[in-house]
């Protein structure tokens, strides 16, 4: 299954809907999604993993790279839609220290305003 990233706005929050498998080939689509979500917008960004079926270690590295880019511009990142397993992976890698983990889009939108 390929990977794609769609961008939309909800209530001042840029949402990147991630679809498919995040692995080596996802680099371009992920970066492009992030650029579209952040161009002309200094606010927080939500990474929505609800439609992500698979992440391997290369995929985690891509996400870390994205977080580094966000951190460089002092941008807050929220994530939602992670399965319990990938929540564990975010805990092990301690990515969770640097993002706001939310169960769903609604709670992410509320957290973004907090």
């Amino acid at each position: 299954m390929d990977f794609s990233a769609d961008v939309r706005q909800i209530d001042g929050l840029a949402v990147i809907d991630l679809h498919g498998e995040i692995m080596a080939g996802a680099d371009d689509a992920l970066t492009s999604g992030f650029v579209r979500a952040t161009t002309g917008n200094t606010g927080p960004v939500l990474l929505n993993f609800a439609d992500v079926s698979y992440i391997n270690s290369t995929g985690i590295a891509l996400i870390v790279g994205l977080l580094a880019e966000a951190r460089a511009s002092d941008r807050r990142i929220l994530v939602s839609g992670l399965t319990d397993h990938y929540k564990d992976i975010f805990e092990i890698t301690r990515i969770s220290d640097f993002v706001t983990m939310c169960d769903d889009e609604e709670s992410a939108a509320a957290a973004a305003k907090a």
């Binding site: 609800a50 079926s53 698979y54 992440i55 391997n56 992670l82 399965t83 397993h85 092990i92 169960d103």
Partner: peptide
């Protein structure tokens, strides 16, 4: 919230303190 196991769960380390 979703709870299904991914296909590669066994490839990852389990959480440790």
């Amino acid at each position: 919230m979703t709870t299904q196991e991914p296909t590669n769960a066994e490839n990852w380390a389990k959480p440790v303190d």
